Computed example of a mutant assay.
Amino acid sequence: MLRMTRYRPLRRPSARPRSAFRTVLDICLAVAILGMLAVVSARFDLLATRQNTGSVIVNDGDTVTLNGERIRLIGMDAPEYMQACNKGGIDYPCGRQAREALVRLIAGRSVTCEGSKRDRYGRLLAVCNAGGVDLNRAMVEQGWAVAYGDYGDAERMARDRRAGIWAGTFEQPSDWRASHHRNAEPRHDAGNWLFDWLREVLRFW
């Protein structure tokens, strides 16, 4: 006769109490995650579209200071302030003339700048207007800036008319900066915008 064996369930070992070290580690991890979320949230807030209006200080042909904030006109690149160009075999201060051209376009009027991106130096990249004039486009159309991610049609018009710096020869502002050990600045195109956007979001203070 077969003997029936009573089934006895296996007893699970009692769970070990969590160590104080593991508890502290979990708390630190949770705080770190919350801190990361707070930083990313703050960066997204800074990347929101901003509009600023007021009187400006013109720093050079593509940079102004508006209400204490430095703003870089997006999509174009003017000769650097100390840069020289050549016309008829004679050098002339095209960087200073580019700044003067922007001053004339503004003509003492209030300027409105709008943008959502920043460059690697923290400047707001923006389109600026004064009295209904798109300053970014106007600088390229008048030949005092080159297309730098935008305004290619305006540059072609200026080149055909031999306006501004196109009346002679000049070094591209980006090349001039590189040869004079100035800060490098990427073109304002979609690829660089994405890179700068990610860098700005993930950057820690």
Score class of each variant (00 low, 15 high):
G143T: 08
M1L: 14
R162L: 03
S19N: 01
A15W: 00
W176D: 13
R72D: 15
T65L: 08
A20N: 01
M4Y: 12
E69S: 09
G122E: 03
Q51M: 12
V133P: 02
R120N: 10
T169D: 13
V133T: 15
W166F: 04
A178H: 13
R3C: 04
R161W: 09
A190Q: 13
W193N: 00
C94Y: 02
G131D: 10
V40D: 05
V133F: 03
L198I: 12
P186M: 00
T53C: 15
V56W: 05
A138N: 07
G191N: 07
R123K: 11
P93I: 02
N52Y: 03
M1Q: 14
P79Q: 05
G75Q: 00
D189Q: 05
E141V: 11
W144I: 13
V31T: 06
L102K: 06
G89Y: 04
L105C: 07
R161P: 02
N183E: 14
R199G: 09
N67F: 08
G95I: 08
L47R: 01
M4K: 15
M76Q: 05
L34K: 01
D26R: 11
P9N: 00
G132Y: 02
R8T: 13
Y148T: 09
I90M: 08
L202T: 07
R187I: 13
A48Q: 12
G75Y: 01
F44D: 09
G164I: 04
R187Q: 10
D189I: 06
Q172K: 13
W166A: 01
R187S: 13
D77G: 02
Y121D: 11
R118C: 02
L73V: 07
C28F: 01
R8F: 09
E80S: 06
T65K: 03
N86M: 15
T5V: 14
Y81E: 05
E185I: 04
L2M: 11
C128I: 03
A167S: 15
F44E: 10
P13S: 14
Q97I: 08
E185N: 11
D119S: 06
D77T: 04
P9H: 02
D60V: 11
V64K: 07
K117P: 00
P17E: 05
I71K: 00
N136K: 02
R11K: 12
Q51A: 15
D119K: 00
G191D: 14
I74E: 12
P9D: 04
S19T: 06
D60I: 12
